[in-house]
Computed example of a mutant assay.
Amino acid sequence: MKQKSKAHDKVMPPLSLSELCSEAADHVAKARISLFNDSYDAEVALLHLDEAIFCLKRLLAHGRSTDINGASVNGASATLRSA
């Protein structure tokens, strides 16, 4: 069985918070379309949901590494630019 590559297996360039939110929303929308169109492709839907979760994890990591003003916390450098 051929294994599909996932986008998050590659090094991802830094994205703004709005770009990450938009990407997560796009993946959720594509998952929904995969489930509710005529072909009903659950595997593709799950792949899109995995990608959306990955985007949300990156948002969470950014939130944990910065304070309310966007400064790094505990020496952690922020990998995302603020919107």
Rank of each mutant, 00 (worst) to 15 (best):
H62M: 01
N37R: 05
E43I: 03
A31W: 00
P14M: 02
T79R: 07
K4A: 14
S18I: 07
A42L: 09
L46Q: 12
G63R: 06
E19V: 01
T66C: 12
R64D: 12
A29F: 02
S77I: 09
K30Y: 04
N37H: 12
A52G: 05
F54G: 10
E23N: 11
N74W: 07
A71P: 00
L60G: 01
L15M: 15
F36D: 07
A61R: 13
A42Y: 05
N37D: 15
F54L: 03
E23S: 13
S77D: 07
L49K: 00
K57V: 05
S18N: 14
L59M: 14
D41M: 00
K6E: 13
G70S: 02
H62D: 15
S82H: 11
N69H: 11
L15I: 00
K4G: 09
A25Y: 03
I53E: 13
S77T: 09
G75V: 03
L20H: 06
A31G: 12
A29I: 04
S34M: 01
N37P: 00
K6T: 10
D26W: 04
A76K: 15
D50T: 06
K6L: 11
H8L: 03
S18Y: 04
H62G: 10
M1T: 14
I68Y: 06
T79E: 10
L59T: 04
D41Q: 02
H48I: 00
A45W: 02
F36Q: 10
A24T: 00
H27M: 03
M12R: 14
G63E: 06
S16K: 14
G75T: 02
